Computed example of a mutant assay.
Amino acid sequence: MAAAMAQLDELGEVLYTGRNCVPRRLGPTEQHPDGVKLAQTVRARVRNGVYRPGTPLPTAILAVRHGLDVKKVPRALRLLIRDQLVAYRQGPAGPG
């Protein structure tokens, strides 16, 4: 169980709450506090035309700028993916 929680935590799927820092797995529509600012930034840039359809997002750069591990970026963008503002494609799409 501990190994599974550690793996989920690495992906940004766990939130520690309360005085005792009790781990809780986030639900599919919940946003991890660490990823909120990143998601807000990307949402604004999509709406303002900075990121155009089909253009790969600089995920590594976004992760560094927002203090996230690059593995947590898909979780941070989950609601934007759901809203079809961005699409998630794994693989080499260029730098970042």
Score class of each variant (00 low, 15 high):
1 M>N: 09
1 M>G: 15
1 M>W: 09
2 A>R: 13
3 A>Y: 09
3 A>H: 12
4 A>P: 00
5 M>Q: 06
5 M>L: 14
5 M>N: 01
5 M>S: 02
6 A>L: 13
9 D>P: 03
9 D>L: 03
9 D>I: 04
9 D>M: 03
9 D>A: 13
11 L>W: 10
11 L>H: 10
11 L>A: 10
12 G>W: 01
12 G>M: 01
14 V>H: 11
14 V>Y: 11
15 L>Q: 10
17 T>E: 15
19 R>Q: 11
20 N>Y: 15
21 C>I: 02
22 V>F: 07
22 V>Q: 14
22 V>H: 12
23 P>V: 05
23 P>T: 06
24 R>S: 09
24 R>Q: 14
25 R>C: 12
26 L>T: 07
26 L>S: 08
27 G>T: 10
27 G>R: 13
27 G>F: 07
27 G>C: 05
27 G>A: 12
28 P>E: 08
28 P>A: 11
28 P>Y: 06
29 T>F: 08
30 E>R: 05
31 Q>D: 06
31 Q>H: 04
32 H>R: 05
32 H>L: 02
33 P>I: 07
33 P>E: 14
33 P>Y: 07
33 P>C: 06
34 D>G: 09
34 D>S: 14
34 D>T: 06
35 G>K: 03
36 V>T: 12
36 V>Q: 15
36 V>S: 13
36 V>L: 15
38 L>R: 01
38 L>W: 03
38 L>V: 05
39 A>D: 04
39 A>F: 06
40 Q>W: 00
42 V>R: 07
42 V>C: 06
42 V>H: 02
42 V>L: 07
43 R>F: 09
44 A>P: 00
44 A>E: 04
44 A>K: 14
44 A>Y: 07
44 A>W: 05
47 R>P: 05
49 G>K: 10
50 V>D: 10
50 V>C: 00
50 V>K: 11
51 Y>S: 03
52 R>L: 14
53 P>S: 06
53 P>A: 09
55 T>R: 12
55 T>K: 10
56 P>A: 09
56 P>F: 05
57 L>G: 09
58 P>N: 10
59 T>N: 09
59 T>I: 11
59 T>C: 13
60 A>M: 09
61 I>G: 12
61 I>E: 15
61 I>R: 15
62 L>Y: 01
62 L>S: 02
62 L>D: 01
62 L>M: 03
63 A>C: 03
63 A>F: 03
63 A>Y: 03
64 V>W: 10
64 V>P: 00
64 V>Q: 14
66 H>G: 05
66 H>I: 02
68 L>H: 07
68 L>G: 02
70 V>I: 08
70 V>C: 04
70 V>A: 11
71 K>Q: 12
72 K>F: 03
73 V>M: 01
73 V>F: 03
73 V>P: 01
73 V>Y: 03
74 P>N: 10
74 P>W: 04
74 P>M: 08
76 A>L: 05
77 L>W: 01
78 R>G: 01
78 R>C: 03
79 L>N: 13
80 L>F: 07
81 I>T: 10
81 I>S: 08
82 R>K: 15
83 D>T: 13
85 L>T: 05
86 V>G: 00
88 Y>I: 00
89 R>L: 12
89 R>C: 06
90 Q>I: 02
91 G>Q: 06
91 G>D: 04
91 G>P: 00
92 P>I: 04
93 A>G: 13
93 A>N: 08
96 G>Y: 12
